[in-house]
């Protein structure tokens, strides 16, 4: 039994590419594959070239990046928390980002592109608050990952309360806009935004891959990790920070896209990835594929309406997750 066989990698890459092509081909109007590929190169009629290159292209790229970032973040957090139910949003990232975005909405920012900065600030503030709460716990509880999970859940609940209060006092437009944003979407993607996120996710992803052996060791428990030479608290903090930065950026770029961070690592584990370097790498590919496909479904299932991306990832993800669960048992 070889971990993460090479054909798995080839298959994952091929699936990602196929998903990307599907993301370009399908939409309100379906464009034949040949025309799509020609339009990518700049050939064909102007409308098609515009649809492919400026509308669907960045959208597919953004979806892939959001999926990759959430899945890598989830894989790292599950390992370091030693909890297969952990996911990026549990750290309070989602609640904090939503607070930032809703407050910005309330203050009159309407274009979703301008929400990225307040959302990101909210996400980072929430994670910082969760880390502080966990740190304030007694010395014996500080090293316990459950303390941090609890802190994240509490901060998330508080954030929800803030959102309710903010929305209770808002206009119908703001309410709808905020809710839509909270359900996740990559509809407003631009090449500029996607490129920016690509650099960011690339750097953070490499940092996580570098930290992966530390996660392997931390997954054994804190005493065992210390016995193997891990500087447990420092390593845990770093992994949390990078995971939170990844998740925070996705929330800023595309709102809340649930379930990806939870289920993708399980899917990749089911294909034999056990150590965190192949697990995180594989999660990036599978997470990207999943969100591209979810976005295709979101914009084609009930035309001309678009479904919320976060709802679709859950609708696709949960049955697949259950199927995998049944297969591994």
């Amino acid at each position: 039994m070889i971990e993460a066989r090479s054909w798995h990698w080839i298959a994952a890459l091929a699936l990602l590419l196929l998903a990307a092509v599907a993301g370009l081909v399908f939409g309100v109007t379906n464009i034949p594959v040949g025309d799509t590929l020609r339009a990518l190169a700049g050939d064909g009629d102007d409308t098609t070239v515009t649809i492919i290159r400026t509308l669907r292209g960045p959208r597919v790229a953004l979806a892939a990046l959001v999926g990759a970032a959430l899945a890598m973040s989830g894989a790292a957090l599950q390992g370091v928390l030693r909890n297969s139910l952990a996911e990026p949003y549990l750290l309070g990232v989602s609640g904090g980002a939503a607070v930032g975005a809703v407050l910005a909405f309330g203050m009159g920012m309407q274009h979703s592109g301008s929400l990225a900065i307040p959302a990101f600030a909210g996400a980072i503030a929430a994670v910082a608050a969760a880390l502080l709460v966990a740190r304030a716990a007694g010395r014996s509880a500080r090293g316990d990952p459950r303390t941090l999970l609890m802190a994240g859940v509490i901060i998330g609940a508080f954030a929800n309360a803030v959102i309710m209060v903010a929305l209770a006092n808002s206009t119908a437009d703001t309410l709808r806009g905020s809710l839509w944003w909270m359900m996740g979407s990559v509809a407003d993607a631009s090449w500029f935004g996607a490129l920016w996120l690509a650099v960011y996710v690339g750097l953070a992803g490499m940092a996580l891959l570098r930290l992966a052996p530390e996660i392997d060791v931390l997954a054994l428990g804190e005493d065992a990790a210390a016995a193997l030479g891990s500087n447990v608290e420092r390593a845990t903090r770093r992994i949390f920070l990078v995971s939170a930065l990844l998740a925070g950026a996705t929330v800023a770029a595309a709102g809340l896209v649930g379930f990806v961070g939870l289920i993708v690592p399980h899917i990749v584990r089911a294909f034999g990835a056990r150590r965190h370097r192949p697990l995180i790498g594989g999660s990036a590919l599978v997470g990207g594929t999943l969100v591209i496909l979810a976005d295709v479904v979101a914009r084609t299932a009930l035309p001309p309406a678009e479904l919320p991306l976060g709802a679709v990832t859950a609708l696709i993800g949960v049955p697949f997750f259950l199927y995998q669960l049944g297969r591994t048992r």
Partner: peptide, 23 residues
Amino acid sequence: VVPQREETVFPLLVREYVALGRY
């Protein structure tokens, strides 16, 4: 050090586990 408690939430193959001793 072989501590009292150790977790196998995310199991490894024995060969991978022993190799962690090289960390």
